[in-house]
Simulated assay, not measured.
Amino acid sequence: MRIGIVCPYSWDVPGGVQLHIRDLAEHLLREGHEVSVLAPADDDTPLPPYAVSAGRAVAVPYNGSVARLNFGFLTAARVRRWVHDGDFDVLHIHEPATPSLSVLTCWLAQGPMVATFHTSIPRSRWLVALYPMLQSALEKISARIAVSEYARRTFVEHLGGDAVVIPNGVDVGFFADAEPRPEWQGGTIGFLGRIDEPRKGLPVLMKALPRIVAAHPDTRLLVAGRGDEEEAVAGLPEDVRDRVEFLGMVSDEDKARLLRSVDLYVAPNTGGESFGIILVEALSAGAPVLASDLDAFAQVLDGGEAGQLFANEDPDALATAAIKLLGDPERRAELRERGRRHVRRFDWSTVGADILSVYETVTDGAASVAPDERPGWRARLGLAARDVPAGKEDRPS
């Protein structure tokens, strides 16, 4: 199957959506499919062989973070060219309500389209206001996927219709088989995320840290992610600051080794999460997980069975739970085992098969339409005759 995947966010700054798309593309390639990913990217960004740049993105505040998006006439021309050259059996559009490549592709292309919705946000006047403009694009989508019940709820409340829930996928074996690093072992707490993005919750963890260190003086906090390190520890007492070690941006391999090494992984995120892929990665690596009780996190952690939850944005609740877990190796071992069993449902062998089943459903439906009922390829792409490359005029639809 020829599959085109559209990523709305810049490939330069990896995030949950980009990593999901990357892993999905590589899973599909291993399964023998032809895959091309269109994504915003700077000219000097190294891209994998299956990825195509749609040009440089611009930073836009979005959902408590900053999204790097790509839009405009030049981008539209690149989208047309990519869709035409790819001759895809199915297009998989991620975040089609985002004003970037995704909505452009919906407007410009025809044929079988699958959309995945990742975002979970409260009632948004912005999305409601944009709906009339988005409606013509969204109506062209053949099947809709949401990565969680909370992403599905956002889609239903703002845009109508419904979506099947298929979670984000993880290569469980990659994390489970990683080798721990001795220097990251021994009384360590792990945190991965952008340091200067408040909703990732590092300030909550920093407020809890003095109590944790007072109860367990040998505890170290390992922080992986980009941001202002000095500002992150500015509120800590001097004698606690040296218990924090910043690792900067880490490779996928080192992320897996970090999660395999720590005694406890803490996810203090405060909101704006529709899933929580880092929780699944931590569970895959066998790390006991302590997470804020966001609805999406509670769902991933099976209501607290596969990991422990604490009251969101409450440093004292975080500290109390962490102190207890660090002092109870039997409880941590129990969480590890429960997590390993629970996480199997998120492996790409399962998630990829579910997504492929959606592709097959929409392509089978398209194939059942008589050829003379389908618009020609030029009309499907929204191309005028002057846009057709030489020698392509008679390409069949």
Rank of each mutant, 00 (worst) to 15 (best):
L205K: 05
N70Y: 09
D87K: 10
H342I: 10
Q308I: 08
A39G: 02
Y265R: 01
R199G: 01
A214R: 15
N70H: 11
D347S: 07
A298S: 05
A285T: 02
G225R: 04
A322G: 07
R257P: 11
L290D: 01
G271T: 06
A333L: 07
P49W: 05
A311W: 07
G382H: 04
G193E: 00
Y9C: 02
T105D: 02
E281K: 08
E149V: 10
R22L: 10
I277A: 12
L91P: 00
E183H: 10
D254V: 09
R78C: 02
G225P: 13
G276D: 09
A322L: 07
A137G: 06
W11A: 01
R345A: 09
V147E: 05
L318D: 10
G339E: 00
S148H: 12
A267H: 07
D43Y: 08
L138F: 13
A353L: 12
S368Q: 10
V300A: 01
V156I: 15
D347Q: 08
S284W: 06
L309A: 09
V58Y: 11
G55D: 12
P14L: 14
L209T: 09
V351D: 04
G173N: 13
A306W: 00
A41D: 09
P40G: 01
W107E: 03
G286F: 13
L28Q: 11
S120G: 03
D44T: 06
A146S: 11
E334P: 00
A232S: 08
G235L: 15
E183G: 05
P315W: 02
S292H: 05
E26W: 13
L356D: 14
N269E: 06
P46Y: 11
L108N: 07
A115F: 07
V79A: 04
P198G: 07
W377H: 11
D239W: 11
L19W: 08
P389D: 12
V213A: 03
Y265I: 04
W107L: 14
V240C: 07
G32I: 13
G376Q: 06
T116K: 07
A282Q: 13
S124A: 06
S53D: 04
V165D: 02
R344S: 11
V17E: 04
S142T: 02
L138W: 11
W377I: 14
P217W: 02
F275L: 07
V13W: 03
P167C: 08
